[in-house]
Nucleic acid binder design. Structure first.
Lengths: 253, 253
DNA sequence: TGTATGCGTTATGTATACATTAGCGGGAGA
DNA sequence: TCTCCCGCTAATGTATACATAACGCATACA
């Protein structure tokens, strides 16, 4: 590899993955503004990888939905309207509803539900704090993500799991920043408590093999998240806490 | 570009796109068997592009869901069970249901509905033939795809449109082969007629801004397609007409 | 002064060379 | 004869060189 002596190469992960992570981070952190053209050369410098892995990373990020190909060549950071993100959340909720229905209809053993119930209990524990601390919020975010991932898996449908993963890019673009901003709002904790109730109901519905009810509650769960988003956006004073919202173009619909 | 004199390069489309189309064709036509490792060098030979565009194409096809990355490196053709494909169809129908609901709720002008009604009329014309010819079936496939695409667009939700596109990879992997096989079945035309009725209902529901009804009928439409798939699979004698089903692994669930 | 054209620079698309790793086969020793 | 280890080969990951196309700027002409 001709070993350019001055450049230290990290061999623990592939250059492609490294570049992808670095670029995604730049996008989500707002270093790269929506609509901004992303220069390969510049990306090569900031990521430390060479052009080939950088290009692979760009293609992956395009497929992921964070970048958009420019017809004349190259890529730009995609810009989203507030409604785009709201739609993405509802979209994801719809798919999760399908997953919950599949889980209920196809049947799930008590053993498989155990980790979900553990998540539930852990979240209960966190929500007991009033008001909840920032640290507890971070834990909540992780647990919530875990709960949703586990629930998705219960569908036993690899294509659905895959699709939900893809649909999560936007809604969960930067969940920590998202929820931390929410924590600054008085209504935040109430919303989390309602969300937790949804979690409880969906488990119950799956246990009792009530597919329609399981599906309905997950869709309601998503609508709650949309209300949550709009609430956060109406409180623009907290927006500096929202790196995820760097994705929202200034002129929204 | 050093212009290797013996290799004729087609400059009308990018090498990356050319490679992607060629490889997808090889996968869907069954030249590459599910589970088979796909060799870059071999792909370079068959597509005529060099390794860089071929690799970009492979990454795109992986994101598209037709290929799977091998941990140790490289890609293999993904294998699907019958249930995977059925789930993909239902998944797509669920998203289309959401699109139909969005269209109904957000309102659609008569002008926007016109092309859909034209599709409808054209399909009606085709279905008047009993039994329907293979050529008419081909036209039907194109018109049906157009109808679904137009309907999706009515949602006015770019993220949803995008997601539906992605979700269509498997269900519509090779629609022509699919439907032509159906045409060999006596029940085929009846199914198409029911499907057309669904199309009519969804338009009506959108016109009358009945979101729930619009959504419900699209989901029913997908369930019809699943029944259709199962019907085709039960008639294994026609399977040689189904290149799309090359994707189904032999040992299904 | 404004517009159009041409040239130059820069960035992307493509090709290929190089490095590394994984997989496989052969040989040797127990 | 079986197993383990070493080395080779082939294919992937990475880097970079080259060609081309696009964009911008400057200049000239209307």
């Amino acid at each position: 590899m001709k070993a350019a002596p001055e450049r230290e190469v990290d061999r623990s992960v592939s250059q492609t993955v490294k570049a992808q992570l670095a670029l995604r981070d730049q996008i989500l952190s707002g270093s790269l503004r929506p609509g901004e053209r992303i220069s390969e050369l510049q990306a090569v410098e900031t990521t430390g990888a060479s052009r080939t892995p950088v290009r692979m990373a760009l293609v992956r990020l395009e497929e992921e939905g964070l970048l958009e190909a420019i017809p004349s060549g190259g890529f730009m950071v995609k810009a989203f309207s507030e409604r785009d993100i709201a739609d993405s959340i509802e979209l994801r909720g719809t798919l999760e509803g399908l997953a919950a229905r599949f889980a209920a209809e196809r049947g799930v053993s008590a053993r498989e539900l155990e980790p979900l119930k553990e998540c539930l209990a852990a979240i209960d524990e966190l929500l007991r704090q009033v008001p909840i601390s920032i640290e507890a919020f971070s834990s909540y975010v992780a647990l919530n993500a875990r709960f949703h991932a586990l629930l998705t898996e219960l569908s036993r449908s690899p294509p659905l799991v895959r699709q939900i993963d893809r649909a999560s890019a936007l809604p969960f673009a930067s969940p920590s920043g998202f929820v931390m901003a929410q924590s600054a709002l008085p209504e935040a904790q109430q919303i989390l408590i309602i969300g937790q109730e949804h979690h409880r109901v969906v488990i119950d519905a799956i246990e009792n093999r009530e597919g329609a009810r399981a599906e309905a509650v997950m869709r309601e769960h998503a609508r709650l998240a949309v209300r949550n988003l709009r609430l956060a956006l109406r409180n623009r004073t907290h927006l500096d806490l929202l790196p995820a919202l760097a994705l929202i173009k200034t002129a929204t619909d």
